[in-house]
Amino acid sequence: MQTFSKRVSMTVVKRLPKYYQYLTDLQDQHIEKISSKELAAMMGLTASQIRQDLNSFGAYGQQGYGYKVKELKEAIRKILGLDLQYNCIIIGSGNLGHAIVNYERFKEEGIHFKAMFDVDPDQIGKKVGNVTVYHMDDLDAFVAHHKIDICILSVPQKVGQETTDRVVELGIKAILNFVPLDLTVPDDVVVESVNITDSLFTLTYLINEEDDDE
Rank of each mutant, 00 (worst) to 15 (best):
V168K: 12
V168S: 14
V168Q: 15
E169S: 14
E169M: 10
L170V: 14
L170T: 14
L170Y: 12
L170S: 11
G171H: 08
G171D: 12
G171T: 09
K173W: 06
K173T: 13
A174H: 14
A174N: 14
A174D: 10
A174E: 15
I175K: 02
I175T: 13
L176R: 01
L176S: 13
L176G: 13
N177A: 11
N177G: 12
N177Q: 14
F178L: 08
F178I: 02
V179L: 04
V179Y: 01
P180N: 14
P180C: 12
P180E: 15
P180V: 12
P180Q: 08
L181E: 10
L181N: 08
L181D: 09
L181K: 09
D182G: 09
D182L: 11
D182V: 12
D182W: 03
D182S: 14
L183W: 07
L183D: 05
L183E: 06
L183H: 07
T184A: 05
T184R: 04
T184W: 01
T184E: 10
T184S: 08
V185T: 10
V185C: 07
V185S: 05
P186W: 09
P186V: 09
P186Q: 08
P186E: 12
D187I: 00
D188H: 08
D188Q: 04
D188S: 05
D188N: 09
D188I: 02
V189H: 01
V189Y: 02
V189M: 01
V189I: 08
V189Q: 02
V189L: 03
V189S: 00
V189K: 00
V190I: 10
V190H: 09
V190S: 09
V190A: 09
V190F: 08
V191H: 05
V191D: 04
V191K: 03
E192C: 09
E192I: 13
E192K: 12
E192F: 13
S193G: 11
S193W: 03
S193P: 06
V194Q: 02
V194E: 02
N195D: 13
N195G: 03
N195I: 06
N195F: 13
I196F: 02
I196H: 01
I196L: 07
I196E: 03
I196R: 01
T197S: 06
T197V: 05
T197P: 00
D198V: 05
D198M: 04
S199E: 15
S199C: 06
S199I: 11
S199D: 13
L200R: 01
L200E: 02
L200A: 07
F201Y: 05
F201R: 00
